[in-house]
Design a protein around this nucleic acid. Structure first.
Lengths: 341, 341
DNA sequence: CTGAAAGCGCTTACAG
DNA sequence: CTGAAAGCGCTTACAG
């Protein structure tokens, strides 16, 4: 391993001087600068980041914790896209991403603690929609830089990047209303999740505003699983007055809904229309392809990275706390105009 | 930040002693050991990993490079699963994963070089199927620990974890033959990729062994894209003697194939059978669900991590160079018995 | 414009 | 069983 000393010796200068040309520091004669740079090339010198970090107290690394399979089911489908967004920006800004995991909540907290207290990262990215997340509490109390992708009901003074889910659900529902639908149902996710609550609210707002009926039999709660949508259908469609359109909390659930409907003999969109959320890759491949709200997963990751790095670099940036990434409706074929009979 | 000195002072011992109890070192009196541990708790002491790394020349970190979107298209769908496998094992073994990226091949090499030469990681995981990968060359020449997920045609003395693609394609084809098919085609990927070549070979072996005809019009080459499979169909199915079954290089391509067949009026599996590879989540959701070869993506990642960490820890392990992860045929509904007419 | 010195927070022979 | 000292590879006042 070639060190700064080797370079210094070879150049006939002191290590301080070499250090200064590396950091592009003030007033080193152009002559020595270029000579030293040449020697660094020759010797294949690369600064030891551990040594650098030790003295600079900075790592140029962002930390993230891999969501646990059981917990954040629906995060998994987004994970690649999130990561791609995060790493793209981070790399551009000269940061890398350190990933760890914990099998239980306790282990997760420990893993984060080691990262933070062990000075391995300059900031943390959090993928979470849990209530009462102990990791949020820890980072918040420690005043360590972090940004949450999602929304925390407990803290409103933390940096977060999120979708406006109320608005998104409002838009989805509005699209159905514009097609002439008057009996619109909602297939939701776990009722304790913020995301389910927000999307439910947007759905209800749109109905209310249009003066349309809102029957509780038309809403079902479930998991972020295909099975969940699948099972809901026999129940909902055997109602005396079934809905003619459905807002579905998530694309995967919508795929289950589609399967369920097909099985019991309903055609989409002829008999019933569907709008869902997230625009995962699969939605183009179903038949019919799904009309869905694109929430800009890559963009969420990219912006989260941007926000975090900004907050690391400006001490106490004047940035907004909560950044909303715009969503947009992607119209495909699962939602159509209602046929008046 | 509380350091080892603070703990030492509070305990009335030397920093060396504290360091020794941290590392669980030899013969420190049980009394001082437990007293120091208590004090560490009290003070909330956590070792500074940068300092530790600097002296131990070890980071407990594995490096990985995010595949570029353009390049390794089909890796992307696997990425979450790979990462999950890798991080699960790594965490268990006390390692974290450092992720970086580069927009071009040059930047990728630079990013890896910084990681390696900057002593930020103890080993590298490579997700690549490229020929003549400069990253492989660099790591190989540097004798830095790394494992390749995939196969390198250039080097046979490197650690790698892979699928036996020849065997997998043989098995897929065999399944079709067992259903009575005699005219079996192959929808392949980019011909220059090792994976396409290997799967083609397995397909051909199975046909030859069964004494079945092998017509070049029955094989098409394309990309790992849905469009690719879609487009191939009109051509293949308008042949005077079209195949009754198709082996398809990848699930995504198979979804395109499915769409193409449906569009021109062929039913799967009644008119034509399909077997593909990889068993991505989507394959359960198509209609009909796809019969496909599961290559154990999580397992590939998990084993890669295991292999890498083993090679980091045992200097020059006696391990096999190339580890094959078993695959298995997942029988769903896209491949059926041929109906003799 | 450049160097000598101290220090970042650890570990580890060496000595006792 | 424990401590003093040197050192890992850098950076950064301080001095000139």
């Amino acid at each position: 391993m070639v060190t700064i000393k080797d370079v210094a010796k070879r150049a006939g200068v002191s290590p301080s001087t070499v250090s200064r040309v590396i950091s592009g520091s003030t007033r080193i004669s152009p002559a020595t600068t270029s000579r030293i740079k040449l020697i660094m090339e020759e010797l294949g010198y690369h600064p030891n980041m551990m040594a650098k970090s030790l003295v600079s107290k900075t790592t140029r690394t962002l930390g993230i914790i891999l969501p646990r399979p059981a917990e954040e089911m629906f995060l998994n489908l987004f994970f690649s896209e999130f990561i791609r967004g995060i790493v793209s920006h981070a790399s551009r800004a000269g940061y890398d991403l350190l990933m760890t995991s914990g099998a239980t909540e306790r282990e997760e907290v420990e893993a984060i603690t080691r990262m933070v207290k062990g000075r391995r990262v300059d900031g943390i990215l959090l993928l979470s929609s849990r209530r009462n997340d102990p990791v949020i509490r820890f980072l918040h109390d420690d005043r360590f830089p972090f940004v949450l992708i999602g929304r925390s009901p407990e803290f409103d003074d933390i940096l977060s990047v999120d979708t406006n889910n109320v608005q998104a659900a409002y838009d989805a529902t509005k699209h159905l209303i514009a097609q002439g639908h008057e009996r619109i149902g909602f297939v939701s996710g776990p009722p304790h999740l913020v995301i389910s609550q927000d999307r439910m609210e947007g759905y209800q707002q749109a109905l209310k505003e249009a003066g349309l009926p809102m029957k509780h039999q038309w809403t079902v709660e479930g998991e972020f699983l295909q099975e969940s949508g699948y099972r809901a259908m026999s129940m909902i469609m055997s109602l005396p007055e079934p809905p003619t359109a459905l807002v579905v909390i998530d694309d995967v659930v919508a795929i289950g809904v589609l399967r369920g409907l097909t099985e019991i003999g309903f055609k989409v969109p002829e008999d019933i229309s569907l709008v869902s959320f997230n625009n995962i890759a699969m939605t183009q491949l179903t038949s019919p392809p799904l009309t869905t709200i694109d929430i800009g997963i890559y963009q969420l990751g990219y912006t989260a990275s941007q926000t975090l790095i900004a907050s690391i670099q400006d001490e106490e940036g004047s940035a907004r706390n909560r950044i909303l990434i715009p969503h947009r409706l992607v119209v495909r074929e699962s939602a159509g105009r209602i046929l008046k009979s």
